[in-house]
Design a protein around this nucleic acid. Structure first.
Length: 435
RNA sequence: GGAGAGAUGGCCGAGUGGUCGAAGGCGCUCCCCUGCUAAGGGAGUAUAGGGUCAAAAGCUCUAUCGAGGGUUCGAAUCCCUCUCUCUCCGCCA
């Protein structure tokens, strides 16, 4: 067993697994997930049978018990009726246990199945299959040898990986002085932009969440090794890998009014990732850290609005880079490169002069009803007269640490000083350059 | 950390072992009456899952009264554990 109190909440529409399961399996295969159809169908058949038997037993018990109650009320002798139900309880208990076991096994499989890719997503196995959508800005040409952010940062002791390693280990960094201030300015700027101009509601959320919350957005049970965990007494909690977890789960187990949609939420938060699967990658500098900051955008929408909202949200992230004057490109991720919960994802990649390449700085995903089903997040559809699942979207708007790197490298001068983008100067006391 | 109280349907609020999925009220929906921005009468009004059905509707079964477990032929009601909320005390950024 996984050790998690798994909710019996599938991630995909159960109808997709009971109906044309081979078509569903084909779509899942396109993103590298191998659905064992035979096993799943066998479990489903078994479940159906045992559930039927269990319900039949429950029905018998209920009717007999009711008869006993009525007979007693009339003062009749109930010993014959009691004899009739003898042994029924034990049989029922056995069946209920069997049913629970089967359902747990089904849940374990269901919870590990990723979202179905949208029909417009290109098929591919890795990032090489991603499609560039457009570019913005022109990478600056330098008339001197560019330095990377590590060199630029260590010159004045602004960026100190050794100090981070001493305190915590690898992939931790200490920022100081003007660079720490620039980092803070970036976060303030982004959050202000999204709240003041893009209509997002600023939120400040817990960084430590419970198991159910992690399960709601899909981090658990499958990706526990990517998370930092806490244990107090026998209560286990997890540090959020992104504010998406907290913001999206705000609607878990809620039935929201139609006129409150779309809900647009933004938060600046710390993020914690174990980076278990990335041992050799980006070990230099602060590109890939265990702890970093991010401004996150989350939208909760009606199902029919999520496609448009995805475009809108991605634009909100792009505007951040444009206002900062950072060249970037938008990539449509292929099936093999998308995250677990996403049906469709755009990545924004920012230009890093030291690497002469674009590096991911934002990821905007439409999760359709995938997370909503698991969270049981619904809205009242006035037309259908029913409670239906909402759609959830999330996007970075944008990663603060990586934005800092991008600013350092793109705005560097020959002497190692760093220009402050126009948009950040109000947050830097008007300073135009840090040196 | 200590002491106490509580958790019932969209909301309020009854219900301490038996025809309780749950009285009553509010709200909401539909109908009727009323020449009317008032009042009255009637009906309806939880969610999820299974089965049946081509499907929907319908019918039917099961589960759900904070969560999990227990006692019992039978639990909203009794017992245990947990979570959360409120009040008071202590501590604290």
């Amino acid at each position: 067993m996984s050790g998690f109190p798994l909710r019996n909440r599938p991630m995909l529409d159960p109808a997709l697994l009971r109906g044309d399961i081979s078509e569903t399996a084909r779509q899942l295969a396109s993103r590298g997930y191998d659905l064992d159809i035979a096993t799943f169908e066998a479990l489903e058949a078994e479940r159906k049978r045992v559930q039927g038997e269990t319900q039949e037993l429950q029905h018998r018990r209920n009717t007999r018990s009711k008869a006993i109650g009525i007979a007693k009320g009339k003062g009749e002798d109930v010993s014959a009726l009691l004899a009739e139900v003898a042994g029924l309880g034990d049989a029922l208990k056995v069946n209920e246990q069997r049913l629970a076991d089967i359902q747990a096994r089904i849940a374990e499989i269901s919870l590990g199945i990723p979202n179905l890719p949208d029909a417009t997503v290109p098929v591919g196995t890795d990032e090489a299959g991603n499609l560039e959508q457009h570019r913005w800005g022109t990478p600056r040409s330098f008339d001197f040898d560019v330095q990377d952010h590590v060199a630029l940062g260590s010159r004045r002791g602004w960026l100190d990986g050794d100090a981070g390693a001493k305190l915590s280990g690898t992939r931790f960094t200490v920022l100081r002085g003007e660079l720490a201030r620039l980092h803070r300015a970036l976060a303030q700027f982004m959050l202000d932009l999204h709240t003041a101009e893009h209509g997002y509601l600023e939120c400040n959320v817990p960084l430590i969440v419970n198991v159910q919350t992690m399960q709601g957005t899909g981090q658990l049970p499958k990706f526990e090794e990517d998370l930092f965990a806490t244990q107090v007494g026998d209560t286990r909690r997890y540090l959020i890998p992104t504010a998406e977890v907290a913001l999206t789960n705000l609607v878990a187990d809620e039935i929201v009014d139609a006129d409150s949609l779309p809900r647009r939420l933004a938060a600046h938060s710390l993020c914690f990732r174990a980076e278990a699967g990335a041992y050799g990658r980006d070990t230099r500098g602060m590109i890939r850290q265990h702890q970093f900051e991010k401004v996150e955008l989350v939208s909760i929408t009606r199902p029919e609005d999520s496609v448009d909202e995805h475009e809108r949200m991605t634009r909100c992230a792009e505007v951040v880079l444009e206002k900062l004057g950072l060249p970037y490109r938008r990539m449509l991720l292929c099936t093999g490169d998308m995250g677990f919960s996403a049906a469709r994802t755009y990545d924004l990649e920012v230009w890093l002069p030291s690497q002469q390449t674009f590096r991911e700085i934002s990821s905007c995903s439409n999760c359709t009803d995938f997370q909503a089903r698991r969270m049981q997040a619904r809205w009242k559809n006035p037309q259908a007269g029913r409670n239906e699942l909402v759609h959830t979207l999330n996007g970075s708007g944008v990663a603060v640490g990586r934005a800092l790197i991008a600013v350092m490298e793109n705005y560097q001068h020959a002497d190692g000083s760093i220009g402050v983008p126009q948009a950040l100067r109000p947050y830097m006391g008007g300073v135009e350059r840090i040196a």
